[in-house]
Simulated assay, not measured.
Amino acid sequence: MDTNYTTNTHRNNQSHILDNDTLAAWIFLSPALILLGLFIIFPIIYLFILSFTTGSFTSAGTYWVGLKNYARLILNPDFWQVIGNTFYFTFFTVIPSLIIPLGLAVLLNKNIPMRGILRTTYFLPSIVSLVAAGLGFRWIFQTDGPINSFLNMFGIVPISWLGDTFWAMPVLIILSIWKQLGFNMVVFLAGLQTIPSSRYEAAELDGAKPWQQFWHITLPGLRPTLVFVIVTTIIFTLRSFEQVYVMTGGGPLNSTNLLVFYVYQEAFAQFDFGYAAAAATVLLGITLVLVYLQLRTWTEDS
């Protein structure tokens, strides 16, 4: 009887302590949860509800239209062009934004001259305002700008970079890669620091070549870092707005209009908030699906 009483008392004390710990955890988490609910969860719910309405925030108000805004999206050829532009921009921005910083990180992780200065130099684009960078790139790629002046030295006719439907998007992609390069490089450098040097020493003793060490040691060791960099780069790319607003305004002929800028135009130029909310909901869905696929793919591989 005494043993059973002692055991039950011990269990009750554990349950009591667990309840206190849980309560304390909720108390400490509540400020963050309240902010998360107010500034993230509530706006998402409100956006979703708004996508089923039409009207404006005036005396006329808004009223329910059901799925009509989504039907308009499906039947609007401009929307599908924007979707195509967004996927084109995302694909050709994300891939180089992974490969180039990874190569730089591997190089700058070695003992080379001026390593600290080079790391700082490559990171500088990350702290530059994207609006300021966009204005700078707009000047560089204007018709009488430095790029065309350089090409003119080789007898190449000046190119209207931002006024041409073929060249305008590559300029935006170059700017986006340049902006993301430093941040990704620093993250890869941090990931490389976690790989034990003994693995490389053992591989050298076994006669492994540098590319074999990279493929069998570096990449597997950077798996969690790669997942983080891929997800953050996709999110950064899909929410691109400043470079389009500053450099091209979505033109020429809608060739650089991305989904975020399209939402801005519909909401604050056309004041069609319900339709803009529907487009924003589609953007949110695309982002969630891409991030989920990336996380699932890398998790299954591991």
Rank of each mutant, 00 (worst) to 15 (best):
L130K: 14
G251V: 06
T165Y: 06
R11A: 07
L102N: 10
F141N: 07
Q212A: 04
L73S: 02
L35I: 11
Y88W: 15
T90H: 02
V94I: 06
T281F: 09
I230H: 08
R11C: 08
F28Y: 13
W161V: 07
Y292F: 15
K68Q: 08
I44N: 01
F150H: 02
L124T: 14
P113E: 01
T287I: 11
I17C: 10
I173T: 15
V282I: 12
M114S: 13
F261M: 08
L118D: 01
F91L: 14
L33G: 08
F79S: 07
L104F: 10
Q270I: 04
V244T: 03
R11Q: 05
S59I: 03
W80K: 03
L108F: 14
P220Q: 09
L35G: 06
T165A: 09
G145E: 00
L18D: 01
F28K: 05
L205W: 13
S129G: 04
T7F: 04
E266C: 03
F79V: 01
L98D: 09
I45L: 14
Y46W: 05
F271S: 10
T233A: 13
T9W: 11
L75K: 11
R239M: 05
W211E: 08
I235N: 02
W64V: 02
A277K: 12
V186T: 04
E201Y: 04
F241T: 09
T90P: 06
K68V: 07
P31L: 05
L104Q: 06
S51V: 03
W26K: 07
E242C: 01
V291S: 12
Y122T: 01
V289Q: 05
S240K: 09
L151I: 00
R199Q: 10
S126F: 11
P210S: 14
G84F: 14
A269R: 13
I147A: 09
I234G: 11
A60R: 04
F271W: 15
I112D: 00
F166Q: 15
P224V: 03
